[in-house]
Design a binder for these strands. Structure first.
Lengths: 143, 143
DNA sequence: ACAGGTCGTTGCGTTGGCTAATGAGATAAA
DNA sequence: TTTATCTCATTAGCCAACGCAACGACCTGT
């Protein structure tokens, strides 16, 4: 049986990649963002847990100076707080303010709304396929 | 039956969105690109079929001037050709050169390689789920 | 105490995005 | 046919985000 046909897997890989990239693209575009995409990305990271500038720069794959500026833009409107580390004066601990958490919450709701709207047009079977697919994709990415 | 449970759809929407965005993110970061991302995106569109500057700008959701510059950057190294339209002198028909097609081919191979590698670890059933899921996602995005 | 390393910030050049304005060509009306 | 208008692509000029280089502040090891 052709279950492991290499060519088949390659074409599937292409299809999966294209689909995911298109979805991500649409989500980013359709959301007329309150916060700039790269700034929201930082907020989302800080929503997980407090971090330093260097950690954020590494996670977001940008240089330390770029992240430093991004953080400054989030501190200015009061979405992020700076705290100096007790044991190491060089470090700047960053965390969300209540306002920052609220921005993350509403922005996520808006992004999910776009997808929800489109999924409502699907059949129960199609949604079940997607449900199983997301579980598989998560395991693949986490790898 | 709970097939249309609104809450269920919302949580699925969130899961789908997150999965797709994570995959897209990983693909973008892991590929140390030969061609800049926004330029490759244009090449990929032209690989589908020849288009005009305006069409590309619309598809890629950028302004006409931005697309004009991007096209110029692709024409300069000989990846894209300009042809004036026979019936309408204002239009600039754009198409890939052989070199352009080669760039698309190798770049896609490199991007797909990451995904292929991970999909090889899956079972035939899991791959089938992904195959059906991509078809569904395409229809959802095209909507 | 001091030399070297790390963390964050600032200065500067590059690049891609936008809007406004321009030029070339099509199109419709007088 | 001539003129006005509209469309497409490009140019000009500005802004935002990035990276690199350089710096100041602060730890760490000798």
């Amino acid at each position: 049986m052709p279950a492991s046909d290499p060519d088949d897997i390659a074409s599937l890989a292409h299809a999966v990649r294209i689909s995911c990239m298109r979805v991500a693209r649409r989500v980013r575009f359709d959301a007329d963002n309150t916060v700039a995409p790269h700034l929201f990305s930082v907020l989302a990271r800080l929503a997980e847990e407090p971090r330093t500038v260097g950690e954020l720069a590494c996670i977001e794959k940008v240089s330390a100076p770029s992240m430093s500026r991004a953080v400054a833009q989030l501190v200015e409107p009061g979405l992020v707080e700076r705290h100096s580390d007790e044991h190491d004066g060089r470090l700047v601990r960053l965390s969300l303010t209540d306002a920052g958490r609220e921005v993350v919450r509403t922005e996520r709701a808006r992004r999910d709304a776009w997808m929800t709207e489109r999924l409502e047009g699907l059949s129960a079977e199609e949604r079940d396929v997607l449900r199983r697919a997301t579980a598989i994709l998560e395991s693949v990415v986490d790898l």
